[in-house]
Design a protein around this nucleic acid. Structure first.
Length: 632
RNA sequence: GACUUGGUAGCUCAGCUGGAUAGAGCAUCAGCCUUCUAAGCUGAGGGUCAUUGGUUCGAAUCCAAUCCAGGUCACCA
């Protein structure tokens, strides 16, 4: 149990004993004492003052006295300032804590709790390479999985690959038209990038063709449109002339966008892509072959990227296998009256009572939609792995979709539907604004990794501290530092917040960064190589220096940091913790010598302190997928 | 328009289950390498916590309204 919790329970018991009234831990607050006051932990007593109708001094005196008398091992002294009761913890408590845990590599990790959780993350489309946004997703998913493991869960990391659909057909069409049989081998281009290039090619064609249509529309030439598209276009144009009169800019823009969309969907290239999707669904051999071939290239490319960034999965689902899954569920839902059928044969669920809309779950032609597949897959996950909960690492643009998914699963009576959790994370923006693939402002994952590693190499060479490293050791070090910087940079921010990616800041290796923590670790290891022997003699420290104590106090909080990161699904709690620990240790390090400590006892204490700090830094960084070097 | 998330130092972010004088990092300025790695340490300047009102002993934190910004509201995935 953490010291804060221990104090809480003692205070609760003391209050109950003193005032003969059943108090709980919610009746008072406990904080760390501000540095300008004497003491370690502070009980805020204002809330008690009200119910007890006495002055804070009286309560504080009674409570403080009781605690010091009944638990002298934990409370050495107290003082009262205004409504605050400051409690002092004896140095022996801290040195005992250090002694008991300093060599425990699993410190902060919990026993197995028998629960199983699946973390789904990454979920790439197979028509283009990974970008910066995917990196945030991958690092978050991987880290949350590790944090759950440390918290005692069995974790299954999963990934759903969106390998079918109109997007991949677009790449396939452009490849057929322009590639002349080009392959990753023949061009030397990484498979995912090659396929992505043809996707861009398709989008360019699409843009050009739809622009021609728009130009014609602007000249009132609608001969390219017919049927429902023509009807809709007519309506839009009529609405537009009306709006032009009242000059509602925002709505006019919206109408123009709709017309643009209509034009895009009326192009020949889109028709080709749609036809190809139909052919794919029918299993036309030449389409399937091409699809397999191009997806294969993408997977080869992804494998390289995943390996480099340290992403791995225990179970990979392919949408081409799961997209039909929801179908039987639709029938069950109808039988249970969770879903209903409209006259045209389409099937819906009414979520208006829950503050949402009606939502389609099956088209009138009998095919399933996105949400239906998700329901099917959710059920399959439970059946296959008997998981207690399921975490989806997906961007916040899909908040609504995930809400609908949770609700439908609940209404269908799926087991553990209440434990479907959406780890919703914010977009990564650039200092120049949003990343837009259509405008070519996307930061490519492979490029970024290359750049980070090159930067770490440059800086390492400038410092010239590792000239005796072998070629392999150097490569390893550059990767450790470069990737460490990148992961730390993306994980140090609260996941749910939109974050700004600043290229200069991301390659900064000073301050609140991965390399800063890695460096602190390497420095400690350097000392430990020179001072390898730690005596097993128990030490009772009674004269802890301020900085020594600060480090131990922080070390005590590591289990809490993991717990918080787990309940909040928030690796940034670990990043901040680990940074604070490194910072505090560095202050201690420059102020007090370990090798030349004032006494043997001090030396032992400080060696333990260093060992435990290194262990916790390593452990915390591992929870974020970041390695720490022995030297750097 | 409806729903939703956010607005804290020049920049990027903590703090938000109400507590003492609002914190880091970067950037700026001033210092510290004959002793354990200076990717480090010490110090300084920098704030109307978007605005207004409310709740109370006490509000960056809770409530309401307003302003600004992002996201969603497809028979796309």
């Amino acid at each position: 149990m953490s010291i804060v919790n221990t104090i809480k329970s003692h205070v609760t018991a003391a209050l109950s004993a003193l005032y003969n009234h059943p108090y709980t831990e919610k009746d008072f607050q406990i904080n760390q004492t501000k540095p300008e006051f004497e003491g370690d932990y502070t009980i805020v007593m204002f809330s008690l003052v009200k119910s007890l109708k006495t002055s804070p001094e009286v309560i504080g005196d009674a409570l403080g006295g009781y605690l010091v008398q009944h638990h002298p091992d934990l409370f050495s002294d107290f003082n009262i300032i205004k409504g605050f009761l400051n409690l002092s913890i004896p140095d022996t408590f801290w040195s005992n804590l250090l002694q008991e845990n300093y060599s425990n590599a699993a410190y902060g990790h919990k026993e197995k709790n028998g629960k199983k959780v699946m973390v789904e993350y990454s979920s790439p489309n197979t028509n283009k390479p990974l970008h910066l946004g995917h990196l945030r997703n991958n690092f978050l998913g991987w880290s949350v999985a590790e944090i759950y493991k440390a918290s005692g869960y069995d974790v299954i990391k999963s990934c759903i690959v969106n390998d079918r659909g109109i997007h991949i057909c677009k790449s396939m069409i452009a490849w057929q038209k322009y590639a002349n049989g080009a392959t990753p081998q023949s061009t030397g281009i990484k498979g995912d990038h090659l396929v992505g290039d043809y996707y861009v090619r398709f989008e360019n064609d699409l843009k050009a063709e739809s622009q021609i249509l728009i130009n014609k529309i602007n000249l009132a030439d609608l001969t390219d449109f017919s049927g429902p598209a023509l009807e809709k276009l007519d309506k839009l144009l009529i609405a537009l002339t009306k709006l032009d009169e009242i000059k509602d800019e925002e709505k006019i823009d919206k109408l123009h966008d709709e017309i643009k969309e209509l034009a895009r969907n009326n192009t020949k290239v889109i028709a080709e892509a749609k036809q190809m999707l139909l052919d794919w669904e029918e299993g036309k051999p030449e389409v399937i072959d091409l699809w397999k071939k191009m997806n294969g290239w993408v997977y080869e490319g992804f494998d390289i990227t995943y390996k480099r960034i340290g992403s791995d999965f225990d179970k990979i689902y392919y949408e081409s296998n799961t997209y039909l899954l929801g179908k039987s569920i639709v029938q069950q839902g109808l039988d249970k009256n969770v879903f209903f059928k409209k006259e045209d044969g389409s099937i819906w669920i009414d979520l208006t009572a829950d503050g949402l809309d009606e939502k389609l779950v099956q088209r009138k032609d009998g095919t399933s939609v996105y949400i239906t597949q998700d329901i099917g897959l959710a059920l399959q996950k439970y059946e296959e792995f008997k998981i207690d909960s399921s975490i989806y690492v997906i961007g916040n643009e899909q908040n609504y979709h995930m809400k609908v998914l949770q609700l439908i699963c609940k209404k269908l009576g799926m087991p553990n539907a209440a434990n479907i959790l959406h780890l919703s994370y914010g977009m990564v923006e650039l200092t120049t604004g949003k990343m837009k693939s259509r405008e070519g402002t996307v930061v490519d994952a492979d490029d970024l990794v290359d750049e980070m590693i090159a930067t770490s190499q440059r800086l390492t060479e400038e410092l010239g501290k590792v000239k005796d490293f072998t070629e392999a050791e150097l490569r390893d070090l550059y990767e450790t530092i470069g990737l460490g910087a990148m992961k730390f940079y993306l994980l140090r921010v609260d996941p749910k917040k939109t974050m700004v990616f600043n290229p200069e800041e991301s390659i900064d290796f000073h301050g609140f960064t991965g390399p800063f923590v890695q460096y602190t670790h390497a420095r400690i290891k350097s000392i430990l190589r020179k001072e390898p022997i730690i005596s097993q003699e128990p030490i009772e420290a009674t004269d802890l220096l301020k900085l020594e104590k600060e480090v131990i106090v922080l070390l005590e909080q590591y289990p809490d940091a993991i717990e918080q990161a787990c309940t909040e699904h928030n690796p940034s709690a670990i990043a901040m913790y680990v940074f604070n620990l490194a910072k505090t240790f560095n202050s201690f390090y420059v102020e007090h010598s370990i090798a030349n400590a004032e006494s043997d006892e001090k030396k032992q204490l400080r060696l333990q302190l260093a060992v435990m700090t290194a262990n916790v830094l390593k452990s915390g960084m591992e929870l974020m997928g970041i390695k720490v070097p022995e030297r750097m």
